[in-house]
Write a protein that binds this DNA or RNA. Structure first.
Lengths: 162, 162
DNA sequence: CGCTTGCTTGGAGTGCGCTCCAACTCTCTA
DNA sequence: TAGAGAGTTGGAGCGCACTCCAAGCAAGCG
């Protein structure tokens, strides 16, 4: 098993966004299905696919949030399916409010190899707790919103009646 | 019914954070119970109570996010229980990601009186939709996190066994 | 060949939501 | 009456996560 740049196959599922169908399909189908049989994408293709801007993709690489992106002989980036997996994890973590610094830390740990499994687990567990709390928070706000919206709706219906 | 500064009593529940016990107590009890029988608080008392900084409270007032705060004869702010109600709504909306600009808009509508009930309802309904979507998003990330954490935990347990 | 299109870079700029500063006033206590 | 402590203001500054700019390079086309 290599400990630099690429993840060992046996832990690829944990290190990248790759999930078994059972888990990945529990929501809706992805809006941008990946073209089959390809493993090289330009930056604009990846931007299109992930919804991130090309600017952001370059920035992610600069700050160490990408595992290492291949280049053509002229220096252009060529992203692989593995990169897309990684980006799908990253965007999920971002959408759920993980700070970029934490994701960079996670990316570092992935680069360092198997010896960092424990710390990776900690990092994700902490974030999971965070996400759970935020769900609870959102839910309690939902109650408040329901209550207030009801009041306004009642007022509207009352005024429509006359 | 007045249409400036203070909300009509019949809609106070919708305009401020005030909720009937039934709704308010569906979660846990508030961490900072309000001292009974008081209706005048200094800015630092409110900061303590709400968890917002005094800076932020002044800033909220500057940008039009506060309904109008009373002053002593020397110009110091004296917040009322009604202000605390409003702030409790505002912090809830903030925590759930409503942009400050939208909250300012809502505050304006409240100041304009009953005629804006419909628009207030719309604004809150849109935000509710937002919150619902975010809950769904968070939940789907939770699945991913569970999956990855399991993998790391399995690896840890396997390595502990030898 | 010239033109367009798409990519490259370092570094500067932007928008949001605070957060803090400097200089001042007022009140209270010793 | 002096000093501490809490409040006031306009405006500057900050951290985050991008977002964009200018200048340049490489490939493809008429």
């Amino acid at each position: 098993m290599t400990v630099t740049q690429s993840e060992p196959v046996t832990s690829g599922g944990a290190a990248t966004g790759g999930l078994p169908t059972k888990v990945r399909d529990c929501g809706t189908a992805p809006p941008h299905p990946r073209p089959a049989g390809r493993d090289k994408y330009t930056i604009s293709e990846v931007a299109e696919h992930t919804g991130l801007s090309a600017h952001t993709l370059r920035w992610y690489e600069r700050i160490g949030l990408m595992p290492h992106v291949d280049r053509t002989h002229t220096g252009q980036r060529r992203f692989t399916n593995r990169d897309l997996d990684w980006l799908s994890l990253v965007t999920k973590l971002r959408l759920t409010g993980m700070p970029v610094a934490d994701m960079v830390r996670y990316a570092e740990l992935v680069r360092e190899g198997e010896s960092t499994f424990a710390e990776r687990e900690q990092l994700l567990t902490a974030h999971r707790e965070d996400v759970r709390q935020r769900i609870a928070e959102l839910r309690s706000t939902l109650d408040v919103l329901d209550y207030k919206i009801d009041i306004y709706a009642d007022a509207r219906r009352a005024s429509e009646r006359f």
